[in-house]
Amino acid sequence: MQMSEEIVQAETIRQWVQQALSGREFARTSRSVLAAGCFDTVIEHQQGITLLLKEKLCGPAFSLARPVFETFVRGLWLSYCATEEDLNRFRRDKVKPTLSEIITALEILPQFSEGVLSRVKATGFDYMSSYTHGGFQQIVRRIGDDVLEPQYNDDEQIEITRSTTSYVLLAGIEIANLANDLPLAQSILDKTIEYAKRSA
């Protein structure tokens, strides 16, 4: 699939998720509001990535990959693990557990026990951090033999588009769960499986 087609597909999926979630209500507890805010941020970041890639602004697009992953994981933690003290600390922007500690806490739970989050962190987090913080991965993609300009190949752009679009779907499932709308969560899960098969 061409990069332009990947972007169209990513935008179509995000719009579908946003429309599916539109008007859904959930209990306005501190936990649910903070978690939903994280998941909504994931969706918006993916929108930013697709817009930036359409404009060939790959550097800033790639710099958002880590916030997508980290914000999704934080939303899960707020939803499933955080204590009242953690929630109060989060509201003061004083998150105490590290990302590794958050993932460890999540993967104790049955729904996350397969270790997908820790594998993503182990295999991709250093690369994501390098893109976000102006590290080698970001800089080396601007250095050619005779030119200084962004040089991100299509495979790399497709990978970030697919991975962040997958997080949109997963974030949608979590928002549906917060709304206690199990049929909607299942519908988004079905779309997630369909997207994974198309992207394989």
Rank of each mutant, 00 (worst) to 15 (best):
W16R: 13
Q18P: 00
Q19L: 13
Q19I: 09
A20N: 11
L21W: 05
L21E: 03
S22C: 08
S22D: 12
S22V: 06
G23Y: 08
G23C: 08
G23F: 05
E25I: 02
E25V: 03
E25M: 11
F26H: 10
F26G: 05
A27R: 14
A27K: 13
A27H: 12
R28W: 08
R28T: 12
T29P: 00
T29K: 01
T29V: 10
S30M: 13
S30I: 13
S30L: 13
V33H: 02
V33P: 08
L34I: 10
L34A: 13
A35N: 03
A36E: 06
A36H: 07
A36G: 11
G37C: 08
C38M: 02
F39N: 13
F39T: 09
D40Q: 15
T41Y: 06
I43M: 12
I43Y: 08
I43S: 07
E44S: 14
H45Q: 15
H45W: 12
H45S: 07
H45M: 11
Q46H: 15
Q46M: 04
Q46A: 14
Q47L: 15
Q47E: 15
G48E: 13
I49V: 12
I49A: 01
T50Y: 10
L51A: 14
L52P: 13
L52Y: 11
L53M: 15
L53R: 04
K54T: 04
K54Q: 15
E55L: 14
K56D: 11
L57H: 11
L57F: 14
L57Q: 11
C58T: 14
C58M: 14
C58E: 15
C58P: 04
G59T: 14
G59R: 14
G59V: 12
P60V: 13
P60G: 10
S63R: 10
S63V: 01
S63C: 01
S63M: 09
L64M: 01
A65D: 04
A65I: 02
R66P: 01
R66A: 04
P67Y: 07
P67Q: 03
P67K: 03
V68I: 08
V68L: 02
F69V: 04
F69M: 04
F69K: 00
E70A: 02
T71K: 03
T71F: 04
F72Y: 15
F72P: 02
V73P: 00
G75L: 01
G75T: 03
L76Q: 01
L78T: 00
S79Q: 06
Y80W: 12
Y80V: 04
Y80K: 09
Y80F: 13
Y80D: 06
C81E: 07
C81V: 05
C81N: 03
A82V: 11
A82E: 09
A82C: 06
A82R: 08
T83P: 00
E84T: 05
E84F: 03
E85P: 09
E85D: 14
E85T: 10
D86L: 03
D86G: 02
D86H: 05
D86A: 03
L87E: 03
F90Q: 09
F90I: 07
R91D: 13
R91E: 12
R91P: 06
R92C: 10
D93I: 08
D93L: 12
K94T: 07
K94P: 04
V95G: 03
V95Q: 10
K96C: 06
K96A: 11
K96M: 09
K96R: 12
P97G: 08
P97W: 05
T98A: 11
T98W: 05
